[in-house]
Each structure stands twice: as C-alpha cells, then as structure tokens.
C-alpha cells in the first residue's frame, strides 16, 4: 500500500486545493483521507455523502461529584494544568484545561472524582464524486488529541483501501510540526510539500522538512504562487537541491485557485492550464513513487 501525504507547514499555500486535484486525477485508484482535522475543508470540493459516521472518543476528563466533594483542595494542589478551581459547594474541573492524567482522582480522599471519556469528534467514511471513498472527520471545538483522530482517520483509510483493493491512500495532512502532523507523516511512502516563495513560506518549509527528515520519507515540493518573489523562489530551489527534494512543479500566482473553490470545483476541473500543470505534477509523483519502491 502506497501512502502519499501532502503537507505545507504554513497555511494558505494551496495544499488542500492541490490534494483534492490529485484526488480527482487519481480517481478510483486511490482512497482519500482528510487529516487536516482541525480545518477539514476537502469535503467542500469532493462532494462526500457522509454515508457512515461514527462517534470518536478522546482520552479522559476528570469530573467531580459535588455531592461527595468535601472541598478539601488536594486535587487542586496536585493538578499541574490549573484545571481545578473552587466554587462554593465543591471543587470543579474546567474540561478544556484538563489533560486527563487522572492524578486528582487517585489522590481524592473521598473518591469524588471520576474520569469520563469524552466525545471529541465524528469520523466519516463517504463515497465521493471521484468514484471512490474518502475518510474524514470533524473535531469538536477545543478538543485535544487531534493527533489521535488523525491516526484514526489514516488507519481507517488504509483499511478501507485494503477492503476495496486500492493500492493507494492520498492524505491531506495537518499543519504545523506538532502531534497531528507527526501522526499524518507516520507510515507515509512519499511526502508532497506545498510552499510559496514568501519569507514565512520558506521558514515553515525548512521547519517542517526537518521533521520529514526525521522520518526518512522521500519528499517532493510544489512551489505555488511561484512568481511572487523571484529571490525567495531561488532560495527555495537551492534548498530543494541541497536536500535532494524532488522539485515537482512551480505554479504561478493564479486567482483561478479561488475561483475554482468558490464554485465547489478542484482546479483541474476548472481551468485547462492548471489542469495541465497539476496533471504533470501528479504523473511525476507517481513516477517517483514507483522508482523509490523499486530500490
């Protein structure tokens, strides 16, 4: 099973537009996974039917029973996350601050504290317009453990692909360098980095690539809005060369990206020129993938 993960470090580079375009080009060959669970947008372009949904539970959150609590304050003393405060009647837990470590419940002398598993989101397996399945999710507001949900989405996508006999999973990855993106990257066969020639685009590309390197995953890069800044474009190209990252494509600044999105289409369904560029990019990804696996 091949797993292609598209990430960007920085937001707004066109990552999701590009991933959705790849999904259209790959059609029935691939199962699609939206691991950008914090800002899951791919469903806006791929018309999922949300046919199967499942509740997703996180780790635990402490709950204090006010009828048992004696207001002794031991729980508050041991909590390192400032999640417990005092009210008139009893101590109370702020669920958004609670890490679910369970320490308070262990030291409560009257067993007033229990740990409840909390529903933090929903997981969907949908049929989409490209004649295949997409696994996606919606995270509840302020929920922790988005890394866990990302892992869940990915694993589900892999088993769906196995069931349907598809050889590939295409993943829209999470932003940043923390837990969610680590979960997105784990197990990937190839990473597509999407960036733009801006000081922040370059900065974030460098940081996220350090992470990719730790995982020893082969990578390629698409530079979007490539004509915004020739000097930084050159810096990016040097970086790609030095790090032996495949230079997949440069796409000029093009407002058709937004026009396509506004019409609920991917760029390859919307604009002939972009279709050509993005198709060539995708073909290149497939070619690299094949040669990397042969080695």
């Amino acid at each position: 099973m091949k797993e292609i993960v598209v990430i960007s470090g920085k937001g707004g580079t066109g990552k999701t537009s590009l991933t959705a375009s790849f999904a259209v080009l790959a059609g029935g060959e691939t199962v699609v996974a939206d691991c950008d669970v914090d800002a899951a947008d791919m469903h806006l372009l791929l018309e999922p039917d949300f046919s199967s949904r499942e509740e997703f539970f996180s780790g635990e959150v402490a709950v204090i029973d006010p009828d048992i609590c004696t207001n002794c304050g031991i729980c508050r003393q041991v909590c390192r996350f400032d999640a417990i405060s005092v009210s008139e009647r009893s101590h109370i837990v702020a669920p958004l601050s609670c890490e679910g470590c369970g320490y308070c419940a262990r030291v409560c002398p009257v067993q007033a504290i229990s740990n409840n598993s909390e529903q933090v989101g929903e997981l969907y397996v949908s049929s989409i317009k490209t004649d295949t399945k997409m696994v996606h999710a919606a995270l509840k507001i302020g929920a922790d453990n988005s890394g866990k949900l990302v892992a869940r989405v990915k694993n589900e996508a892999k088993s769906v692909a196995e069931e349907l006999g598809k050889a590939m999973v295409l993943v829209d990855g999470s932003p940043g360098i923390g837990c969610p993106v680590v979960s997105s990257l784990s197990g990937a066969s190839f990473v597509v980095l999407v960036t733009e020639p801006t000081v922040s685009g370059l900065h974030d590309l460098k940081r996220v690539y350090q992470l990719v390197k730790k995982f020893k995953i082969p990578a390629g890069c698409v530079v979007n809005k490539a004509d915004l800044n020739p000097q930084i474009l050159q810096e990016i190209e040097t970086l790609l060369q030095d790090e032996q990252i495949h230079y997949l494509a440069k796409i000029p600044y093009n407002e058709e990206f937004t026009a396509a999105m506004t019409n609920g289409k991917t760029v390859v369904e919307w604009d002939q020129n972009l279709r050509q560029t993005v198709s060539e990019t995708w073909q290149q990804v497939l070619k690299i993938l094949e040669s990397e696996t042969k080695e």
Binding site: L96, L139, I141, G142, A143, D144, S146, G176, G178
Partner: peptide, 10 residues
Amino acid sequence: SPPGTSCPVI
C-alpha cells in the same frame, strides 16, 4: 494565535 480550533488556540 495558532491556527485551528483545538487546544493551542483555546
């Protein structure tokens, strides 16, 4: 602030 709607933003 960081992007998104999960813990870090809160």
